[in-house]
Computed example of a mutant assay.
Amino acid sequence: MLSPDKISRINELSKKSKSVGLTIEEAKEQTSLRKEYLETFRSSMRSTIENVKVVDPEGNDVTPDKVKALKEKKFLN
């Protein structure tokens, strides 16, 4: 998870870019922070999906094969 300070800075830079614009240094910082945020988000989402088990109303496991394969691969490593 990204620290609250970094998220606050992302929001601050976004507001500034919409109102008065960013300096070159601020634009680089914004790009870097956004990249870090996306990496963190994707990692978290990937972890969530890898740990999901899908069950139909009858109680049958209908988890997609791709997710099952990821679980097995993760378990074996």
Rank of each mutant, 00 (worst) to 15 (best):
A27Q: 15
S17Y: 10
T63H: 07
E39N: 08
E72A: 10
G21K: 11
P4M: 07
L13R: 02
S32D: 10
G59N: 04
P4K: 13
A69T: 05
N11S: 06
K68C: 00
D61P: 02
A69G: 00
V62L: 15
E12Y: 09
K74M: 04
D56C: 04
P57M: 01
I24W: 04
T63W: 10
L2R: 08
S3W: 11
K66L: 13
T40Y: 06
S19D: 07
V67M: 12
D56I: 06
N60P: 02
S44E: 11
N77S: 11
E58M: 11
K35S: 12
D65L: 12
A27Y: 13
T40W: 08
I10D: 07
V55P: 00
D5R: 00
D61Q: 03
P64R: 13
S14W: 04
S47F: 05
E50S: 01
S17L: 09
P4F: 09
N77G: 14
D65E: 15
L76H: 07
E25H: 09
D65S: 12
K15T: 08
T63R: 06
L33S: 01
V20A: 08
D61T: 02
V52F: 10
S8H: 08
R34V: 04
E29A: 03
S8W: 05
L22N: 05
S17W: 14
L22T: 03
P64F: 12
D61Y: 02
R46T: 07
K74F: 05
E50G: 00
P57H: 01
V55W: 06
L76K: 14
P4R: 11
V62T: 15
I49L: 13
S17K: 15
N77H: 08
G59K: 01
I49R: 11
T63Y: 10
V67H: 05
D65P: 02
L33R: 04
N77P: 03
V62H: 12
S19K: 07
S8F: 09
V67A: 03
K68W: 06
L38W: 11
V62I: 15
R9Q: 10
V62S: 04
E26L: 01
M45L: 12
T23S: 13
E26R: 02
I7V: 14
L33I: 01
E36R: 02
L76W: 07
